[in-house]
Design a binder for these strands. Structure first.
Lengths: 197, 197
DNA sequence: ATAGTATCGGACCGATCGGTCCGTCAAGGG
DNA sequence: CCCTTGACGGACCGATCGGTCCGATACTAT
């Protein structure tokens, strides 16, 4: 091999694709646009990502990793100085008051997320809207994310002693935040606080 | 003129386009597909709708008309046997208890809407997701709908004697319903009832 | 210095896009 | 009866899509 195999090549490509896909939508962005933004050749792109679907899947996985990290951090902070790393572990073995605080923290984390500059909706919901009949790899990544986060809420609510409708209501608030059309996100956070007390 | 000028031609085209656009997304549906589904020639289609954007705008206007009719009917029913036709008139001049019932009726109407067979999200939100930077005619129709319905909620809440946050919370429930990802819609309706009592 | 290899960037492919144009045909009125 | 009129539907247009291929280039290991 001659050069160093591409040190940050894949990262540059995926980073550029992430920005473009999220801001403009996956369908609206062509591979040529990604190549131009990444400053590489077609060779490099198709070496790392053999198709547009593979690139889109990597984009969604990247967003998911970012979301999971932020969520896990928020849950851990709400659980106190616990050294738990996975959300599932955090949900189990913590007192019910902790579970309530964690649910509020979960809603607050989403509220903070949707207030980011250039927030343009949930990347996973957006993808499923763009490809409603899609059964390809990125669609699976998107659906897995929604299923897993929904399960995360359910587990926390199960730890809490509240009636079963609380989980649905928390998830209602999260859905509202992700698809929000102007309502101040703090309203959802305050409402979640009332819900768990 | 020879033939009858096209009695239901425009209707057939718009009906076919509405189904295709809503189910598969505007971007994913080509004009040839609309033509095939409508069973007409290209001539007819481009006579009634000079461009795809015009057809998409007509599609959204059609959905809006359907939504407005259903909403107005629900509001009138909640206001009693009033003979008001416009939602704005219904909101004004009705007692505060009526306004509360109307807000619940509004949420219930959306809940019923999202439980329709083959519901695939809010057509207006979907379009804005597919064309995030769109400043064309259909985007304006979509944004107008969201703005007007939001204003409708605000007016009803103003009639009600509740604190200002109630309007945001009602709208939160409506946003959650439209972008819902599995939560039973009745949960939102029940929550709205608690909210206005 | 030279051989070898990885990258670049553009030519190129077939398919499809929205949109235009026109030859053909059927129907209704003089 | 013919003749006007309008719809059909396919040919066609330029542009763009995702994806392949290849010549030119530049760098590294020997």
């Amino acid at each position: 091999m001659a050069r160093t195999e591409d040190p940050a090549g894949r990262e540059r490509i995926l980073s550029a694709a992430t920005d473009l896909f999220y801001v403009n939508g996956v369908r609206a962005v062509g591979m040529a646009e990604v190549i131009a933004a990444a400053g590489c050749g077609k060779h490099m792109l198709y070496r790392h990502f053999p198709s547009k679907a593979a690139l889109a899947a990597a984009y969604l996985r990247r967003v998911r990793a970012e979301r999971d990290k932020s969520t896990t951090r928020a849950l851990a902070a709400a659980a106190g100085a616990s050294k738990t790393t996975s959300a599932g572990d955090a949900a189990r073995g913590i007192g019910t008051t902790r579970a309530g605080e964690q649910l509020v923290a979960l809603v607050a984390e989403v509220a903070a997320w949707v207030q980011r500059r250039d927030y343009r909706g949930c990347a996973f919901r957006n993808y499923l809207t763009e490809f409603p009949a899609g059964d390809d790899e990125p669609a699976a990544v998107a659906r897995d994310y929604l299923r897993d986060t929904r399960r995360q809420v359910d587990e926390l609510v199960a730890t809490l002693g509240k009636p079963g409708v609380t989980g649905d209501r928390i998830w209602l608030l999260i859905d509202a935040l992700y698809g929000g059309t102007g309502t101040p996100p703090q309203v959802a956070v305050d409402w979640a606080k009332e819900l768990v007390t």
